[in-house]
Simulated assay, not measured.
Amino acid sequence: MTLDLAFTTHDVANTRFAVSPLGEVVASVRVVKNPRAHPLLRPWADQVRRRLRDVDWRLLSDLVPVPTISIAGFTCTPPATSMPDLDLELATMRGAAGRVRSDLEEIPGPRTKHVRALYDRPEEGLERLAKEVEGYWEAAMAPYWPRVRSLLEGEILHRARLLAEGGIQRMLADLDDTVTWRDGTLRIKHRFVSGVRTLRGLGLLLVPCVFASPRVFSVTTPPYQPTVRYPPRGIATLWERREVEPPEALAAVLGRTRARLLAELDQPAHTRDLAQRAGLSEPGVNQHLTALRRAGLCTAHRTGRYVLYARTAAAEALLAPHAVKPGTT
């Protein structure tokens, strides 16, 4: 089965990216409930399942059945801003009481007692759901969020570069193995949906989502903005604890700390993430990154409240002849 998303010139102009903490929570429920189906994410699931024993997330669990055919739209409304935090997305969800019943009526199958209670009293039910998401987040997501967010922001930066190099066709060409672009249409191999959908002039919202792996999820039903959630590159590296050793010759020229930071930028990252990985203070990392930036070895790109650093072509050339091998600790 294939789902075809037909673009107009207005849709191309309005296509954008966003990160969704709430979307990651909802998608991750599938992983906790069936870790065997998600080999790249199983190390995370094995770690968090014990922590979740003391968390009440029964309603959240019932709203994300496994196998997952569809999920009610109000649980993770497509974000209106590019970098929302969890509080903002939960505020949006709490305000969606008017859509709860219509969204649930589109979901096939019987309702559990917790979902029936939500259907009968949407405002109370959404408040309970928000509290459950907050507890789930603290136990299962918050400890990993800095590295997940860095990966997502790096993916968006990568897509922005592809867009600059070759337009929307270049950007979408390798989005996922199940996605192809041809003649103004994005075609998605889909398990449960087929047909042609227009984007209604709203453009497409692209949301890289770690816990969507290995699937691509789509939203095409009004009133929501058409959305595609897809797995970003590099998910397998998220759960590794790495010690990156820079080439000795480069360390002799730049100093070991700056060479180490440059080697760590195999994926774009922000200061806090780099400080945690390298065992340094954030102010110290900032000083080193400023020096590397002035030397033309890294660039800085603001994404929301954060500045994301990436290696330049000159830095890649310095590192390319050497094997910068991450090891597992």
Results as ranks from 00 to 15, higher is better:
148 V>G: 00
66 V>C: 04
236 A>L: 07
153 E>T: 01
63 L>I: 02
259 A>R: 09
180 T>E: 10
117 A>Y: 02
251 A>M: 10
270 H>F: 13
119 Y>C: 01
308 L>W: 00
146 P>D: 02
145 W>Y: 10
287 Q>H: 09
4 D>V: 03
67 P>V: 08
163 L>A: 08
23 G>M: 03
77 T>W: 03
239 W>P: 01
92 T>Y: 06
209 C>K: 05
318 L>H: 04
279 G>A: 05
243 E>Q: 02
286 N>Q: 13
161 R>E: 09
20 S>M: 12
210 V>Q: 06
24 E>K: 03
77 T>E: 10
141 M>L: 08
234 G>W: 03
19 V>N: 00
125 G>H: 04
30 R>Y: 09
288 H>D: 10
23 G>E: 08
263 A>S: 05
145 W>C: 11
261 L>T: 02
106 E>H: 13
227 T>P: 12
142 A>D: 09
317 A>L: 10
95 G>Q: 02
92 T>A: 12
129 L>A: 11
306 Y>V: 11
326 P>E: 06
93 M>P: 09
305 R>P: 09
71 I>W: 00
222 P>N: 12
18 A>R: 09
249 A>G: 01
141 M>R: 03
154 G>I: 04
313 A>T: 10
213 S>G: 00
300 A>I: 02
89 E>A: 04
117 A>I: 06
58 R>H: 11
160 A>M: 15
74 F>P: 08
156 I>F: 12
243 E>R: 05
132 E>W: 13
67 P>L: 10
299 T>F: 00
281 S>I: 06
193 V>Y: 14
248 E>L: 13
190 H>M: 14
179 V>T: 07
192 F>Y: 15
88 L>T: 09
264 E>P: 00
79 P>D: 12
102 S>E: 15
21 P>W: 08
300 A>T: 02
96 A>P: 04
9 T>H: 13
7 F>W: 11
94 R>Y: 01
179 V>P: 02
39 P>D: 12
19 V>A: 02
91 A>N: 03
316 E>R: 12
183 D>C: 00
212 A>F: 01
33 K>E: 11
224 Y>R: 14
162 L>C: 04
271 T>W: 00
76 C>F: 07
105 E>A: 15
8 T>Q: 10
329 T>M: 03
261 L>R: 09
5 L>M: 10
309 Y>V: 01
262 L>H: 03
152 L>A: 01
76 C>L: 00
257 T>Q: 05
232 P>Q: 12
221 T>M: 13
151 L>G: 07
296 G>P: 01
257 T>K: 03
312 T>I: 07
38 H>S: 11
212 A>P: 03
283 P>M: 08
215 R>C: 03
12 V>I: 15
247 P>V: 11
265 L>V: 05
270 H>N: 12
311 R>G: 06
130 A>Y: 13
55 V>N: 05
290 T>Y: 11
324 V>R: 02
231 P>S: 08
198 T>N: 13
206 L>T: 13
